[in-house]
Design a protein around this nucleic acid. Structure first.
Length: 875
RNA sequence: GGGCCUGUAGCUCAGCUGGUCAGAGCGCCGCGCUUACACCGCGGAGGUCGCCGGUUCGAAACCGGCCGGGCCCACCA
């Protein structure tokens, strides 16, 4: 053997002990039985004395516990487990933790409904708090306000049960996770990591606070980041509205007439002939009679609408850009609740304008629009009727109302969105990362190249990781945002709404001269982007961290390349100056039979546990492993049935291969005993399979590896096993010993090849005749199997056997039928192979008389002039 | 509008850098309870590789165009 992996036995194993093969083999109960055995042995426990070179570390995606797992999870987590098992057998010490994502909006909502509470960070912690009820799924009603700490405790209580169910499913599926290494994204440790990483970003100037217009969800009343946007179709209508110029009306078209009081300029393209004479002049807005400058800006598109746009603060992101670049005034009228601000703005001077505004104050944008349109009709400033249109609007991915743009103070982390050097550095990180499949890299590059701002990390929610920041209050009680009070790292995690900054006392909270907490929490990605640091012990266990980081693999879905993957790269680049992992494995979607992405709302989700119970875990894993990374796969029960058949075949073929000779007589695995040509040829073929399958798995191509092993295995069963079984049954001789050793060696290798995909069936068989677990056995290498024989001998002999079978099949006779004489037409290339295996061919084909070999061409052997003697009919 | 993926037997998919590629499994048809397996075995039928051009001695594979499916980004006047 050319290379020794750490768990290769010191001396090559050449014989096995006695065998205990059950009379009846079955997959029933293997999942539970082996899960228990593996747990008892701590088979997948991580050995933290391993060095970084020995470790293979996986940054497992933490599923959202307040949701439910579906077949897509089973699919992609199987891909990861195949990698983990392969690497473990290759001799790597696999660091394979499991996390639970219980931070964020889905959990917040679930806890609210389940316990009838809501989070109010301004409240003090209550020691023995009892929620009003439990199990209030979907109930709505008055919710008792509780402190953030109480809320987090309830969250932890609720998610414990979810986690148990999730773990049970993963165990059933056979994930080789080290279950002593689980983490929660809402845990104290995760919060501490998130806060510490943030404080370091802040110290290095990578995190900053800014007051600026930004996208705002009026339902959740929080700022929203670029990565959380979703463009959706939204019905709207173009309204042609007259502004009053000195030389007559100037018409603009708008879908948001309610923003008329927020208008700050009319803007056309600098080259637009139609508006040259107006540039530099002013017009007056209808209804509100505000003097509005007409300005030129290249971003205006002459063929859009009237070619001249109404710039408001703020209707869309283009408005923001105009406002910034043309230094326009701020005239906001939409509040954080999505309603028109109640206070009449000071820029509305005339009584008429103020009266018009008062009609709008407090209305939703929708109602305000109706009122403005009615007003425009009344004054004759609406030209024609509104023309309905489908427009695209930006939505928060979890929201159902279009986003507004609101000015607010927010925290940002630099991500290259407004800094070319950093953008280039992050693009370089992307280039350095091994994407599997590699075309997924394009999504990363597109996203980073298209960033238009830094990462907005603050959210105006209550449940989540709070910013570890307080502000001193001046003598007027105003917070001094530019002089934040920060905790030390060893104090983390803190909750600024209940903890007190150094040098202050609790009773100074909110008092002039005292302090106040930053009210915001972090975006969930601000925590999730640190999963390698959380699970690797960055904060508390530097020794562990040095052994697992940078990690080897990030498995994840393609939809969160722009969020989870990118944000993790950003944090690692900023904090560690490296990639967080060297490779990423991107799984595809599961499509239902209509080729649509499976989703709960469509009611076509099959419960994963039901699937595992019905088909068996190995079968479901086989289906998952049959799909390549990055490729969408159909949810196909047929493929699971094939997997089940394969698993059962592994049991049966193994039972058979182990049945020759006395059970108390050890089987030899010594290749030196393999002397018959066809046996040596079979091993040579297997050597090729091992070599190619290993290369495929190294390249994250589990599909190819499985296909190679599977194809070999079926030929092994259907042809090779049939050919050699008579010889293997024979009296002790060199030929018999050759067949038995070849079968044992092949079985030993095949079980290991299949172990990553079929962990239960292979372990079951392994236990019949081998010590320990197949999952800690070394991955096979081709060298011990190599022989000088031509692997084509097996194919040639198989072709000869098929020809003999075909004669019987066409004569509609049983395969037991004897052939007392026949001619076998053999293509020249197969002649040596057929000759070398003639004895096996004769016995497998039940040829009892003369078998004459005749030269032929073609690609397969053909039998002719066969004399067939059917078996005597049974009584 | 830009980009990525994808279109091969009824179905799900292999066909890697152009020359045994026209394949596998399921399904279908026929046969068979063979000292592992009926949750099985054996044999067989099925496709002008989305369409049209081009490159080449040769293309499912490479190039261009078109058509169809999926997805991402941009488009919010």
């Amino acid at each position: 053997m050319s290379s020794e992996s750490p768990n290769t036995p010191a001396a090559p194993l050449t014989t096995t002990g006695t065998r205990q093969v059950p009379d009846r083999v079955s997959l029933d109960g293997v999942e539970t039985r082996w899960d228990e055995a593996w747990t008892a042995q701590d088979l997948y426990g991580f050995d933290r004395t391993a060095t970084r070179e020995q470790v293979y570390s996986i940054d497992t995606p933490p599923p959202t516990v307040s949701g439910s797992l579906h077949v897509g999870h089973v699919f992609s987590y199987t891909h990861t487990d195949v990698v983990a098992r392969f690497q473990r057998m290759r001799g790597r010490e696999v660091f394979y933790p499991m996390g639970w994502d219980d931070n964020g909006l889905p959990t917040e909502r679930r806890v609210q409904n389940y316990y009838g509470v809501r989070c109010d960070p301004s409240l003090p912690y209550e020691d023995a708090f009892t929620p009003p009820f439990e199990g209030g799924e979907g109930k709505s009603g008055p919710q008792v306000p509780v402190s953030r700490k109480n809320f987090v405790e309830l969250c932890e209580r609720l998610t414990v049960e979810d986690e148990r169910l999730f773990e049970a499913l993963w165990r059933r599926l056979g994930l080789s996770v080290d279950w002593s290494r689980t983490y929660q994204t809402v845990s104290a440790e995760s919060r501490a990591v998130a806060q510490q990483a943030f404080l370091r970003n802040l110290a290095r100037g990578e995190a900053y606070q800014a007051e600026a217009p930004g996208l705002w969800d009026v339902t959740f009343q929080t700022a929203v980041a670029q990565a959380e946007l979703e463009a959706r179709d939204y019905p709207g209508a173009f309204h042609r509205v007259a502004f009053h110029g000195s030389e007559g009306p100037v018409y603009i078209e708008t879908t948001r007439p309610e923003l008329l009081p927020a208008c700050v300029a009319l803007i056309a393209h600098p080259d637009d002939e139609r508006y040259q004479h107006l540039f530099g002049t002013t017009v007056r807005s209808p209804l509100f009679d505000v003097e509005i400058p007409v300005l030129a800006h290249p971003l205006a598109e002459p063929d859009k609408g009237a070619g001249i746009a109404m710039c408001c603060t703020f209707g869309d992101l283009t408005d923001v850009q105009w406002w910034r670049e043309l230094q326009l005034p701020t005239r906001s009228v939409v509040g954080r609740d999505g309603r028109i601000l109640r206070e009449t703005p000071e820029w509305l001077a005339s009584d008429g304008a103020r009266a018009r505004y008062e009609e709008l104050a407090g209305k939703t944008t929708f109602s305000a629009r109706e009122a403005v349109v009615a007003g425009l009709r009344e004054t004759g400033d609406l030209d024609g009727e509104p023309v309905t249109t489908q427009r695209k609007a930006n939505f928060y991915e979890k929201g159902d109302k279009p986003l507004e743009i609101v000015t607010s103070r927010q925290w940002y982390i630099r991500n290259g969105g407004r800094d070319e050097a950093l953008r280039e550095a992050l693009l370089a990180r992307g280039a350095e990362l091994g994407f599997n499949p590699d075309f997924m890299k394009v999504r990363y590059e597109n996203w980073v190249s298209g960033l238009n701002g830094d990462w907005l990390v603050s959210r105006q929610r209550f449940f989540g990781v709070p910013f570890p920041v307080w502000y001193p209050l001046d003598q007027d009680g105003e917070p001094q945002h530019d002089a934040p009070l920060l905790p030390t790292e060893d104090q983390l995690p803190i909750d600024p709404s209940s903890d007190v900054p150094a040098g202050y006392t609790a009773d100074q909270r909110g008092v002039p001269g005292g302090f106040v907490a930053d009210p915001d929490i972090m975006d969930t990605w601000a925590t999730s982007s640190l999963t390698p640091q959380i699970v690797g012990g960055w904060r508390t266990d530097p020794d562990l961290f040095s052994r697992v980081f940078p990690m080897d693999l990030r498995p994840q879905g393609q939809d969160i390349i722009r969020t989870w993957l990118f944000s993790t790269v950003v944090r690692s680049h900023l904090e560690h100056g490296s990639l967080p992992w060297s490779s990423a494995a991107i799984s595809g979607w599961i499509l239902d039979p209509d080729r649509k992405k499976m989703s709960k709302s469509k009611g076509n989700v099959v419960t994963p546990m039901g699937l595992l119970e019905e088909h068996g875990s190995d079968a479901v894993r086989y289906w998952a492993a049959s799909a390549r990374l990055g490729t969408d796969a159909a949810f196909e029960v047929g493929q699971m049935k094939i997997g089940r058949r394969l698993a059962i075949k592994v049991l049966n073929a193994s039972k058979f291969a182990l049945s020759f000779g006395a059970a108390d007589e050890p089987l030899s695995l010594d290749p030196a005993l393999v002397t018959s040509e066809i046996d040596r040829a079979m091993l040579a073929g297997l050597a090729d399979v091992v070599e190619k399958a290993t290369a495929a798995l190294e390249a994250y191509d589990h599909t190819r590896a499985l296909e190679l092993s599977e194809t070999f295995f079926w030929t092994f069963c259907d042809d090779y096993l049939e050919l050699v079984k008579d010889r293997a049954y024979g009296e002790p001789s060199a030929e018999t010993a050759s067949a038995r050793a070849a079968l044992a060696i092949a079985l030993d290798v095949l079980l290991r090849l299949f172990a990553p995909v079929l962990p239960f069936a292979t372990e079951e068989v392994w236990s019949w005749w081998r010590e320990g677990s197949v999952h800690r056995a070394p991955w096979p290498t081709p060298e011990p199997l190599r022989t000088s024989a031509d692997p084509g001998v097996v194919a040639a002999a198989g072709s000869a056997l098929a020809a003999l079978r075909k004669v019987k099949s066409e004569a509609k006779l049983p395969l037991r039928t004897e052939i007392t004489a026949a001619e076998l037409v053999v293509p020249a290339a197969m002649r040596p192979g057929v000759e070398s295996a003639l004895g096996d061919i004769r016995s497998a084909g039940r040829v009892t008389g003369t078998l004459t070999l005749v030269d032929g061409d073609g690609e397969a052997c053909v039998a002719r002039d066969a004399v067939l003697v059917p078996p005597a009919p049974k009584a």
